[in-house]
Design a protein around this nucleic acid. Structure first.
Lengths: 107, 107
DNA sequence: AAAATATACCTTGACAGACGAGGTATATTG
DNA sequence: CAATATACCTCGTCTGTCAAGGTATATTTT
């Protein structure tokens, strides 16, 4: 059983930011890590992931740089900014409150 | 602080079904009740509510009938069906699992 | 050596749900 | 008699997800 798009929606950016709190990473790796962390219950589709990266960069929550791979495909790394860290905390508060509120309604 | 549309998304139908488990009700009342239950943290906008009613009816999860008001505006009542009750239980399981999964990702 | 798979990036267009803005009608209150 | 509350509804816009497609390099399998 996997999480539906409509429930996932609104959490994508927070999930990415959370991941970048631990360490800089790149698209393909983030994708794999999220699946692994959740035993494949949650998969951010590539198109979803990349559109979220664009929004996060636009908002100044992440910045990017190319890795210096000498072998293999090039990697675009993402790094969380201070504004991103603040945004993450806000997202997290929203989530805690939303959980409470939705629980109130689904009795 | 109120819950964002994107987090709410995917829960609208479940929230309505949950409400109808208690008793038959009509749009305007459901709207007010939800706001009251959540101290105005969650408001289903009218357009959102009515489009959800259409989907739920289409799916056979609710059925409707007109109230027999002798005074005041007419009311269209909604009633949950057996299929609706089952769908609600499925929604609820999804929600419990989604909570767990998202919590895993937002550390 | 060729084919398949894995790693890694990306874009385009369709789709669905939330909602702002608008509309209708009746009853009550100031 | 105007304003507010109750009660219904539709249309069109916006936004995030994702299926489908593309590129390029490295490794593994046949």
């Amino acid at each position: 059983m996997s999480i539906t798009s409509d429930i996932l929606r609104g959490h994508t950016e927070a999930i990415i930011l959370s991941h970048l709190l631990e360490q800089d990473s790149y698209g393909y790796q983030i994708n794999k890590d999220i699946m692994k962390k959740t035993d494949n219950r949650c998969e951010l589709k590539e198109a979803t992931l990349y559109s979220a990266f664009r929004r996060l960069e636009q908002a100044g929550y992440i910045c990017t740089y190319w890795g210096d791979e000498t072998v293999g495909a090039r990697r675009r790394y993402y790094s969380i900014t201070d504004a991103g860290r603040e945004a993450y905390q806000a997202y997290k508060r929203d989530w805690e409150e939303a959980k409470f509120t939705i629980d109130q309604l689904l009795k």
